[in-house]
């Protein structure tokens, strides 16, 4: 039994390039996911017919595997519209939509967690329901949403490895390619795991920091 440290060292630049793509894909998708999810989450709490659409979206995404969602975006849609979608774009769309559904639930429960008395106090002062939402409910919900959003960020970072199936050279895909050449799966997968660990650990530290900064007056 030998352990090839040198192999890890030599693979590191390529793996880190992959990790960088992983970070890019995840960050961009979390950004769009928060955008989509905030809208969907608020729509779910609204009175109009749009809430059913938002509900269907959330149920669909949460009830189907991300892998299938990636296939639908990368293989399904291009066939339908007779136009290929680049893997990078397909990955971001799939990850964003996936993230959005989970964020929608986080946003919804965050808003619902604010006591009814807050809305009532705002309304009793003559604020419109929209202003009550904007000045009173959302700022408070936002603080409560930060920790679960951080968890979602971490979950998406890990799940993003699934886009390796559409040949995007993110971290996992890079490892697969190197293993194909070197036949050293143990060292490579261990290295991949450690790189993921460093990334997720960093994110959770960042989230903790933001959470502490926002704690004032809550």
């Amino acid at each position: 039994m030998d352990f090839r440290w040198d192999l890890i060292w030599r693979s590191l630049p390529l793996l880190l390039q992959g990790a960088w793509l992983t970070i890019q894909l995840t960050s961009i998708s979390v950004f769009f996911g928060i955008l989509v999810g905030t809208i969907a989450g608020m729509l779910r709490l609204s009175k109009g017919p749009m809430r059913y659409l938002a509900g269907a979206y959330v149920d669909f995404i949460r009830g189907t595997p991300l892998l299938v969602q990636i296939f639908i975006i990368y293989y399904g849609f291009p066939a339908l519209i007779q136009n290929p979608v680049p893997p990078y774009v397909a990955a971001i769309i799939a990850l964003s939509l996936n993230c959005g559904a989970y964020v929608a639930e986080i946003v919804r429960s965050g808003i619902q967690s604010i006591e009814k008395g807050q809305t009532e106090a705002a309304l009793s002062l003559g604020l419109t329901p929209n202003k009550a939402m904007r000045y009173i409910i959302l700022p408070q919900a936002f603080r409560r949403i930060i920790p679960p959003l951080g968890n979602e960020f971490i979950a998406l970072l890990k799940d993003s490895s699934l886009v390796s199936v559409i040949a995007l050279e993110e971290l996992v895909r890079r490892a697969q390619v190197i293993i194909g050449r070197t036949f050293r799966p143990f060292e490579l997968w261990l290295a991949v795991a450690l790189i993921f660990l460093v990334m997720t650990f960093t994110i959770s530290r960042l989230v903790n920091y933001v959470e502490r900064r926002l704690k004032v007056g809550d």
Partner: peptide, 19 residues
């Protein structure tokens, strides 16, 4: 909305805005 502006309300549990 106008009526509420003219009718202040004080609640049992204060309901101040904590943030």
């Amino acid at each position: 909305l106008q009526v509420r502006q003219e009718m202040g309300m004080v609640f049992q549990r204060f309901n101040l805005f904590p943030h």
